[in-house]
Simulated assay, not measured.
Amino acid sequence: MVNSTSTNFYDTYDSTTPCFDSLLEAVNSLSDSSIDSLDDIDWQPVSGGDINEASLLTIGNSERKKHISQQIFLKQNTIEKAPVLEAEVAGLAAIYATGARTCQPLAFGVDNERARSFLLLSVIHSYKGSATSMTEGWQNLALQLATLHQAIAPQPKTNQSDNSDKLDNNQPSKWYAGWFDDNFIGSSPQRNSWTADWHEFFASQRLGVQSQMAFDRQRIDRQTLQQIERIQHKLEQLLPNYPLTDDAEQPRPSLLHGDLWAGNAMLGQATDNNNNRNSTKALGYLIDPAVYVGHPETDLAMTQMFGGFTLAFYDAYLEYGLMENGFSDRVDIYNLYHYLNHLNLFGSGYLSAVQRIAQRFGG
């Protein structure tokens, strides 16, 4: 079983990832030798994302800093999009605190001279080995997700008079869904106000926000909006309570990845303490999160969008006891949030999925 003991999130949420005023300064902080210009770095564009511009940087060998790879992964965006990258740093720190495997944020900042925000990350080298090791990698990815979900979820300090957004590891009187800040689902703002009722949280801050946005943008008609509103009002009958309990036998939520489709999980090559790659072993990594606290089934449901994960992954995850009976009937309800978000971001190609789910559960 994965370790479900309480983790001290107090320091890890306030990430120690250093912040810099220029990309050159950030890269130099990770290099033994001084680099005079960004032109002296080997840049390799990386495709696959639709939000940030990604590159693989080679800055030379580092004998002194063994924990820093010779290669560094760079994400860049506009200055206005800096909060998207900053939210990713916080999400990666939270996932790492649970013991689940993810990439390491190395440096973050806003380069006003280049009019770019940036995030430097450790590199994950994709696994391309045998089918047997790939299967083991998918099983390991299931372990990483279960590790995330079984860890004690971060909670607000509701018993503190200053209402600090630090973390409280004491037994709470009630459990909250939400997060310390609003963040982003893709490039869309994601509301995360702490809410004591999971069904209310999912109704208002997931389905409610996205469906109203779709209606205001004339992406859905009033009939579909009303159907979704009916779903919101009966979520307590449609969705279960949390599958885990705390020391007082209260149902408790999990920390969620939040955006777990196939593009936001990786099978990477294992490395040793000297960062040497082991090409014969695949390990699972959770990347590009949109974290919040809620029901673990929401992550599992999203894995079934856009082709889904392998049967080996689902069989392995099932062993951790986080999937309840009837899950397959609830997948569409959880994923309605993501279909609405894709409808708002990318247009009418997702309308039929939204209408189908709205009619099925709210017609």
Rank of each mutant, 00 (worst) to 15 (best):
S204F: 01
S188A: 14
W198F: 15
S188C: 08
H199Q: 12
N192M: 13
G178F: 11
A214H: 10
F202L: 06
W179R: 07
M213T: 05
Q210C: 06
A214M: 08
Q212T: 02
R217V: 00
G186W: 11
A214E: 13
T195C: 15
M213K: 06
F180D: 11
L207H: 09
V209Q: 03
R217H: 09
R206N: 06
Q212A: 05
L207D: 05
A177I: 02
Q190I: 00
I185S: 15
F180R: 15
F202D: 01
Q212C: 02
L207Y: 08
A177G: 07
F184N: 02
D181S: 14
S211T: 15
R191C: 09
M213N: 05
N183A: 14
N192Y: 10
N192D: 09
W175I: 08
P189V: 02
E200T: 12
I185V: 07
S187M: 06
D216E: 13
P189T: 07
Q210I: 12
S187C: 04
Q205D: 05
S187E: 04
A214D: 10
V209Y: 06
S193T: 15
N192K: 11
F180M: 15
W179Q: 10
Y176R: 02
Q210M: 14
F202E: 02
F215R: 14
W194I: 11
Q190C: 02
S187V: 08
Y176W: 11
S204I: 09
Q210R: 15
S187P: 01
Y176N: 10
Q190H: 04
Q212E: 05
P189I: 00
F215Q: 05
A177T: 15
Q210V: 12
D182N: 15
R217N: 07
D216I: 03
A214Q: 12
Q190G: 01
S187Y: 08
F215C: 00
S187G: 08
W175E: 10
Q212I: 01
Y176P: 03
A203Y: 01
N192A: 13
W179L: 12
S187W: 00
A177L: 02
D197L: 02
D197A: 13
E200G: 00
E200C: 02
T195W: 01
L207E: 06
W194P: 11
I185D: 07
F180V: 14
A203N: 06
A203M: 02
W175S: 11
F201P: 02
A177W: 10
M213D: 00
A196E: 07
T195D: 09
F184P: 01
A203W: 00
I185G: 08
Y176K: 01
S187Q: 12
T195E: 13
N183F: 13
S193K: 13
S211F: 04
W175T: 06
H199L: 04
Y176H: 12
A214S: 13
S188E: 07
I185L: 15
A177E: 02
A214P: 07
I185H: 13
D216V: 05
H199T: 11
P189F: 03
G208W: 00
G208S: 00
A203C: 05
R191N: 05
Q210H: 09
F215H: 12
Y176S: 04
W194H: 13
V209W: 04
A203V: 06
R217I: 00
D216M: 03
S204L: 03
G186M: 08
N192S: 09
Q190N: 09
F184M: 04
E200I: 14
A203I: 06
E200R: 03
S204R: 10
S193A: 14
Q212S: 01
S193R: 12
D182T: 14
